Amino acid sequence: MAEFPIGDVVDAHVHLMPERLMAAIREALSDAAGWEFNHPTDRDEMEAALTTAGVEQYTALPYVARSGAAADLNEWVIEATADSDHAVPFATVHAADDVEAVVTDAFDAGACGLKLQLPVQGFGADDPRLGPAYEVVAARDAPVVLHAGTAPMFTDSPHVGVERFESFLASYPDIRVCVAHMGTYEIEAFLNLARDNDNVFLDTTFAMSSVAKTYMDFDPTTVSDDTLAELSTSIMYGSDYPNIPYPYAREREHLLSRDLSVEVQRDIFSRTAQRFLGND
């Protein structure tokens, strides 16, 4: 098993949600892609597995598919992570909610960022209804994680893609925003946005795993070592744990097999996430 070469590794894309909601998400993924899951969903068991794998800190990302559910879920995540030494709790919101109130309440209670799963939630990053939520995020100098790309099963969704993201970025050019899954399948366009915008980040989740070809029909070697080195201060490690249909080691082993300097590895596995979170 490939081991992390540095300490204080951050996994910038982990999902922590109530058991019933997690089971529903897994059932939907199984129905859509035939995936099977055997990683634990209990927080203590998740953290034990992550720390055994070398992860010292992780973002706890929730999301909801319907309006009216975000406030309760945010409260659950914040309470579930209150005594954790490892979790950084995020909040979520639905565009049909009172978004300003939901996000403000979550941040006041301890949330550190905002997560939107756009194709599942059914709206784009530039949906004008989200404006008040982004204003709260900007005022708190907090980060946002967006599933803004078309992978792994959203190529026909009108809510994702680089054009919708660019529209968001034009309105909120100063918010630190992470595009999940390296922006696949429009990865080159998203890489260029990261080159041109210091506030745009990408996470490696799923796309840079050693089994990406099998599970999302993407070849991670199309992203060169030079590109990873060039953008190491904008690219951060993430896993989608525990909702991955393969062993956790698969998420990191391809990245660790690359010819990357220790400094680049430190960026990707730790420092870039800290910068994204505002801890630099």
Rank of each mutant, 00 (worst) to 15 (best):
C178K: 04
F165E: 12
N74C: 10
A48V: 11
A139C: 02
P128E: 10
D105V: 03
F154V: 10
A96M: 12
V136Q: 11
I175V: 15
L73Q: 06
A82M: 08
L114W: 00
K115T: 07
A142N: 07
D98I: 09
A87C: 07
A60G: 00
D126V: 04
D72I: 02
A151K: 09
V64A: 01
H159A: 13
P158D: 05
N74W: 02
L116H: 06
A82F: 07
R140Y: 04
A60T: 02
T81P: 03
T104Q: 14
D127F: 05
T104S: 15
L130V: 05
D98K: 10
P89K: 07
G54D: 05
E100V: 08
G113F: 01
V160Q: 11
R129V: 01
E166I: 12
T104F: 03
K115V: 07
L169P: 08
C178F: 03
C178L: 10
T52H: 14
T81R: 03
P158W: 11
P152S: 14
T52E: 15
F90R: 00
D156A: 15
P89S: 08
D83T: 12
P62I: 00
Y172F: 15
Y134E: 03
V137M: 06
L61R: 00
I78L: 04
S84H: 08
A101I: 10
Q57G: 02
N74V: 09
D127K: 05
A71P: 01
G131H: 12
M46I: 07
L50G: 00
Y172P: 03
L114M: 05
A71C: 04
V88Y: 10
P128Y: 01
V64T: 03
L50D: 00
